[in-house]
Design a binder for these strands. Sequence first.
DNA 1: GCGATATATGATATGAGATAACATGACAAG
DNA 2: CTTGTCATGTTATCTCATATCATATATCGC
Lengths: 172, 172
Amino acid sequence: MTSPVSSKSDPATEALGFAAHDHDHCVETAMAAAEARCNAEGLQFTPVRRKALEILLQEHRALGAYEVLDRLRDAGFGSQPPVAYRALDFLVANGFAHKIERLNAFIACAHPGTSHSPVFMICRLCDSVAEASAGPTRGALGQAARDAGFQIERTVVEAEGICPACSEKAQA
Amino acid sequence: MTSPVSSKSDPATEALGFAAHDHDHCVETAMAAAEARCNAEGLQFTPVRRKALEILLQEHRALGAYEVLDRLRDAGFGSQPPVAYRALDFLVANGFAHKIERLNAFIACAHPGTSHSPVFMICRLCDSVAEASAGPTRGALGQAARDAGFQIERTVVEAEGICPACSEKAQA
DNA sequence: GCGATATATGATATGAGATAACATGACAAG
DNA sequence: CTTGTCATGTTATCTCATATCATATATCGC
Ligand SMILES: [Zn+2]
Ligand SMILES: [Zn+2]
Ligand SMILES: [Zn+2]
Ligand SMILES: [Zn+2]
């Protein structure tokens, strides 16, 4: 096994929501679901877009646009920034992926299909990212908005800290 | 009067938390408070840092690091990016200012002195930003973190939408 | 005070993230 | 076949951010 040492690790054994899982299977099912939804809604799930989503799903972590671009180039697509940004824009606009503002990076949605306001937990030690789901108008934000007369259209909720795995490691 | 036309407007008449206020006074008191706290805590409130905070307070909106840098240069300080980033890092690290991740921009804290997890409301029409305060472990985020065993160290909570003022304009 | 150590500033260079603008190709509607 | 729409590719440029090295200024133990 290579480099069990520090932060980055093998996606197949790494956290999805900080929990181990059958990675190949989850990629396949997510791709199939995306395929189906694009068909149903008349969205053009073109090769670049498909590949971009596959890249995000494979990694199961937040990738910068240029990392995605590198992999798209390797797969034979264009090599200029707009190629990646356009594919990512499509994925984000249609809920297949999210942008993590804190990291300027993108990640495949962990709860696709459902309309949701994502909530992210970002481990500062291993860079893993878990996605939870939350109603948009609940909690402190919704209250503050109502008090102020502010109409929320979109929310960014991201927590930075230590994931369970790194927490255990630190104790040992 | 110049350009009452579109989005950007005079800080003195513009929203602080979407509400009008005595701007000169609020800048002065905030500067004095910062001064006092730096003295009390042994922080070096140097000329660049002081000026950077003054700039953020004067504008009362989110400024990009390079906008701050421009104004610092005008005030006779260094003109290279690290000058601004270092001053801003100091202000953020000590709670005098916050970074708005969604905008890659910085804003003076509206509730200085108190330890708090800020919550921002960003108007996509006029770019005004209001800061509300909220306990870090409440709401959906705190619940998701507890469920996952994730230790939150810092939170980013930002809502994008329409502020009360722009909402009224739109109705008319 | 004085030297050692830490902290802050200045300047250079470079890296990383994002978009404007324009050209080309695929395809469907009229 | 023409026209409009959408997706892709490419070029150039812009904004945001940091690594690094050199110099100055505090701070602290003595
Ligand atoms: Zn999601
Ligand atoms: Zn971790
Ligand atoms: Zn604040
Ligand atoms: Zn507004």
